[in-house]
Structure formats: structure tokens, C-alpha cells
Design a protein around this nucleic acid. Structure first.
Lengths: 168, 168
DNA sequence: ACGCTTTGATTCGAATTTGAACAACCCTAG
DNA sequence: CTAGGGTTGTTCAAATTCGAATCAAAGCGT
């Protein structure tokens, strides 16, 4: 811990690229979603997860783990979605405290309406800008980065990936 | 605009990796900065830019362009930094409306105190997790992605990079 | 059955972000 | 010189975020 190892030019470029790309892609998608379907990105993510879950319902806590926002943030966003009729709350039969978030028909409709524009935006902003090698890097390298910072278990499967592949 | 081109498995993995890594690295650094120096990431970025500017001062509008936040967001954060004595405001002599944000001695001290821990965190979270080839791809690929989404000039220099390299 | 520790979800207050509206000002064409 | 158009920075309200505190209920060992 003597003199800190500063970043050389290449490392700096990588860091700057990562930082800028994160922010700009984030803003770009936020924008697209908002004007395309009136959804924020957190909200869209919630709908996606619900749409893929069997029965279209997930417990709040589990949902909070799959999504970027905190627990209280999730309560807020689900409340918002509920007010728009895209999601419904159902209390868990086996656990009085438990609450399921359930995707309504209307919610599924909105989700399916929003998805094409969203993937198109993702392609335009990120995927289609990169070549094969670069795509692999994002998947492998950044996957590794993300996994190392996993708030949950430090003990990730030693295989190249975990089992929670989800769509978009 | 017929049937949208969905993401195949590899593209999906890349997108997920990028998204997760962005969020987790962001949170990680935010956390580290906050408890290391009581600075938020936006605030730290402001100090860095000021620290590299000649005379340690930059016009508000120019600063707003270099940083992630919006114009009003910048006003807020500079106000915050001013209250902590790390930044001072100075009105521009040639333009009455103009305002320079100026790094104070105390501000420079705090910046220099915060920098080592920050780069260490950046290394730990991102840089040191990737090998040489991956760093190069990251710099090139995400640099390209970021440049394409540049809110300012669509007309970027055709060279591989622009001239605004900044430290961290 | 009884305490005690965890867990599930919400509520609350404080901090932050954004875009729109605003007031003041610069500059250039005519 | 002077009106019009663009700039500059701030203010404002609304939306969102987070973490800590809260409250009820489940799980557990005895």
C-alpha cells in the first residue's frame, strides 16, 4: 500500500470508455423507454422478470434481488406499476407477510409492446456497434466483473456461468 | 420494421454482463468514495476536472458538459461542494453571467486524499479483473459506443480517439 | 408453549436528479 | 444603435433513490 499504482494510458482509456458507455447507454435507453411506453428502465426490468416467471408472479424480496433497485425502491416502483394497472399484488398463502407481484394482462400487453423498441435501442446503442470479439469480451469479461461484485453469495459456481439466465 | 431481431444467447449474455457490471461497479465505487472521503461520484468527478484544469477553474457550462449530470444538477453539486469549502465560485470578468468553479486548497487536499483509494477501487472492481487483450477491446469497443452516443458533435475526429484525455 | 433471532415488506425522511421556466446578459445583423 | 436570437446560470416542483427505522410474523432451540 505504498505509492498507489496509477492507471496507465491504456487502462485509463478502458476505464473512461466503460464509464462513458455506461452512462450514455443508460440515458439512451431510459429515454427510449420513456417515450416509447412511458416506462422507466427499473419498471421495464420488473415487468420483464415477471413476464418470464411461471405464473407471471414473483415474491417481492426475490424480485428485489434480480433487479437493480433496493428493497424500498422496489416497493415504490411496484406501487407505481400497480397504480397503472400493469401489476397486481397478491398476498402469499403460506406466509402472511409475503407478497407476490403479479403481472396483469394489461401489464403483459404493455411489456410486449415495449420490448421490440427496447431491443432495437439496445442493438443500436451497443450490440450492433461491437464485433464478435468485443461481444464475447462483454459477455465473459464483464460477466466476470459483475460476478465478483455480486452482493449475494461470494461462492459462485466455478463453471463459466450461473444458472439464472434471463431474457430481455 | 417487421419482426424485431431479438438477441441471441451470446448477445444477451453480453448485454446482461454490460448492464450488471455497470450497475455493480457504479455502486461499488460510489460506496468506496463515500466512506473514504465523504464524496459522491459526481462530486469526485467535478474535483478531478477542476484539478486538471489550468488555474483549477472551469466555467459552469463547460464543466457540465464534461460531467454526467445535467446543468441544474451541476449547480446543485457545486453548491454542495462550496458549502464544504472544496470549491469556490468566481464570476467571470468578461461575461457577467459567467461563473467559474474554482478548486480551493482544501479541495485539492481532499481530492489528493481521495484519489488513491478511488483508483485502487477501480482496479479492484474492473481493471485488474481483465487481462491485456480484454482491456484493449474494452477501450476500443466501449470507446466507440460512447462516442456514437455523444450528446454533442456527431462530427467526431476520424482518428481513433479524441483529444480530451483526462486523468482520474 | 416460550423467548429470541431472523425475515418480509412497508414507511419515513433526507438527498439527489431532471426538465422546464426564468431572468439576465451577450452578440450580431440591419 | 437596437431588436432578435441564443447563452448562462439558477430556481422550482416533481419524481426517484437510498438507508434506517418499524412492525408483524415465521423459524428455531429448549
Amino acid at each position: 500500500m505504498s505509492e498507489p499504482r496509477w492507471l496507465d494510458a491504456r487502462e485509463m482509456a478502458a476505464w473512461q470508455g466503460f464509464l462513458l458507455a455506461s452512462n450514455r447507454v443508460g440515458h439512451h435507453l431510459e429515454q427510449q423507454l420513456k417515450e416509447g411506453s412511458g416506462l422507466s428502465h427499473p419498471q421495464y426490468e420488473i415487468l420483464v422478470h415477471l413476464g418470464e416467471a411461471p405464473g407471471g408472479e414473483i415474491r417481492m424480496t426475490e424480485l428485489a434481488r434480480s433487479v437493480v433497485t433496493s428493497k424500498s425502491g422496489l416497493t415504490y416502483q411496484v406501487g407505481r406499476l400497480e397504480k397503472r394497472g400493469l401489476v397486481r399484488r397478491r398476498s402469499c398463502p403460506t406466509d402472511v407477510r409475503g407478497v407476490y407481484a403479479v403481472l396483469t394482462d394489461e401489464g403483459r400487453r404493455v411489456l410486449e409492446g415495449a420490448a421490440p423498441g427496447h431491443v432495437a435501442a439496445v442493438r443500436e446503442a451497443l450490440i450492433d456497434v461491437l464485433d464478435d470479439a468485443e461481444l464475447n469480451l462483454l459477455a465473459e469479461g464483464l460477466g466476470r466483473v459483475a460476478r465478483r461484485l455480486d452482493p449475494d453469495g461470494e461462492a459462485a459456481a466455478s463453471g463459466s456461468d450461473r444458472g439464472d439466465e434471463r431474457g430481455d
